[in-house]
Nucleic acid binder design. Structure first.
Length: 119
DNA sequence: AAGCTGACTATGG
DNA sequence: GCCATAGCCAGCT
């Protein structure tokens, strides 16, 4: 269980998303919807994806590769520079991936609503 | 300015 | 489970 500290700087939705994503533990993954729900935008999972898209322009690193869709599919892989960079990063963290699908997805799933609190 | 586009999901059949 | 459909809403044409 970790804690996110809010400040004036990260009051907007995108920044909140980044804060959550940055809390995802090494070797764990979560879904767009879980993040959206946790931030009170349960029906706006697409916006989480959009935030990931915008994260490319950020100077600070955001582990966007640890965010996949609800079935554990690497739907965002094409938005990484190289074709398999997303998969490579996840494999480097100990996950097994086959056909863009994370194996034993549920065993690696990290639910922010369950393991994170906002101060 | 109106319409289109998605790194998505929930739901009904 | 799969498939189609329909909400979603910020940003881009």
């Amino acid at each position: 269980m970790s804690t996110i500290k809010l400040s004036e700087k990260n009051k907007d939705f995108f920044s909140l998303v980044y804060e959550v994503v940055k809390q995802i533990p090494h070797g764990r993954v979560t879904s767009y919807g879980a993040i959206a729900k946790y931030l009170g935008m349960a029906r706006s999972a697409r916006m989480v994806g959009w935030a990931m898209n915008a994260s490319h322009t950020l100077s600070e690193p955001v582990p966007a590769h640890r965010v996949v869709n609800r079935s554990g599919l690497l739907t965002g892989k094409h938005h990484f520079g190289q074709n398999n960079e997303m998969q490579s990063r996840l494999e480097a963290e100990g996950l097994e991936i086959e056909e863009d699908q994370i194996l034993n997805f549920e065993d690696h799933f990290w639910d922010p609503a369950k393991e994170l609190t906002i101060e």
